[in-house]
Simulated assay, not measured.
Amino acid sequence: MPAADPVTEHHDSAFGRFIECTWSPPALAPWVETFWYSEGWLANLRERVLPNGALELVLNLGAPIRMVEGVGAHDLPGGALSGMLARAAVLEHPRVHRVVAVRLRPAGAYAVLARPLSEVSDQFVRLDDLLGPVAPELLERCHEARSPEACLRIVARWVTERVARAPGFDPAIAFVARGIEQSGGEAAIAALGERAGLSKSRLATLFRGQVGTTPKRYARIIRFRRALDLLDAGARSLADVALAAGYYDQPHMNAEFRELSGMSPRALLTTRYPSGVTMADPSGACDPSGACDPSGAAGGSSTAALSGAVALSGAVALSGAADPF
Results as ranks from 00 to 15, higher is better:
residue 12 D to A: 14
residue 109 A to L: 09
residue 100 V to D: 06
residue 133 P to S: 07
residue 48 R to K: 11
residue 243 L to C: 07
residue 137 E to A: 12
residue 148 P to V: 11
residue 41 W to F: 13
residue 281 D to R: 10
residue 9 E to K: 09
residue 51 P to N: 08
residue 103 R to P: 00
residue 314 G to Q: 04
residue 153 R to W: 04
residue 208 R to D: 08
residue 318 L to H: 11
residue 87 R to M: 01
residue 312 L to F: 03
residue 3 A to K: 04
residue 148 P to C: 01
residue 283 S to K: 01
residue 249 D to Q: 01
residue 154 I to F: 00
residue 8 T to H: 04
residue 12 D to L: 15
residue 252 H to T: 09
residue 89 A to S: 11
residue 259 E to F: 07
residue 298 A to L: 12
residue 150 A to D: 14
residue 113 L to W: 00
residue 240 D to K: 10
residue 139 L to Q: 10
residue 192 L to A: 00
residue 277 V to E: 12
residue 225 R to W: 15
residue 245 A to G: 09
residue 173 I to D: 14
residue 181 E to G: 08
residue 205 T to I: 03
residue 31 W to S: 12
residue 222 I to A: 10
residue 3 A to M: 10
residue 79 G to T: 03
residue 52 N to Q: 13
residue 60 N to Q: 08
residue 226 R to C: 03
residue 140 E to L: 08
residue 22 T to G: 05
residue 238 L to R: 04
residue 107 A to K: 06
residue 154 I to G: 06
residue 92 E to V: 01
residue 300 G to F: 07
residue 85 L to C: 03
residue 281 D to C: 00
residue 320 G to S: 08
residue 56 E to P: 04
residue 81 L to Q: 09
residue 258 R to H: 11
residue 193 G to Y: 10
residue 5 D to S: 15
residue 241 V to W: 10
residue 89 A to I: 02
residue 277 V to A: 12
residue 111 A to M: 02
residue 285 A to F: 11
residue 120 V to F: 01
residue 7 V to Y: 14
residue 240 D to G: 09
residue 36 W to V: 02
residue 97 H to G: 11
residue 14 A to C: 02
residue 215 P to Q: 02
residue 241 V to C: 10
residue 181 E to T: 13
residue 58 V to W: 13
residue 256 E to N: 09
residue 181 E to S: 12
residue 269 L to Y: 10
residue 230 L to G: 08
residue 113 L to N: 02
residue 231 L to V: 15
residue 323 D to K: 04
residue 282 P to V: 08
residue 284 G to N: 03
residue 251 P to N: 05
residue 90 V to C: 06
residue 318 L to S: 13
residue 29 A to K: 05
residue 81 L to I: 04
residue 45 L to N: 10
residue 9 E to L: 15
residue 20 E to P: 00
residue 266 R to H: 06
residue 199 S to L: 06
residue 94 P to E: 07
residue 304 A to K: 12
residue 101 A to F: 06
residue 37 Y to D: 09
residue 320 G to H: 08
residue 175 F to E: 15
residue 261 S to R: 00
residue 62 G to L: 07
residue 146 R to L: 12
residue 81 L to R: 12
residue 34 T to G: 05
residue 245 A to M: 03
residue 324 P to R: 01
residue 13 S to M: 01
residue 263 M to T: 00
residue 151 C to Y: 08
residue 123 Q to D: 05
residue 237 S to V: 05
residue 322 A to W: 09
residue 148 P to M: 02
residue 209 G to Q: 15
residue 69 E to A: 14
residue 43 A to K: 07
residue 115 R to P: 07
residue 234 G to K: 11
residue 111 A to R: 15
residue 169 F to P: 07
residue 7 V to K: 15
residue 154 I to M: 05
residue 69 E to D: 11
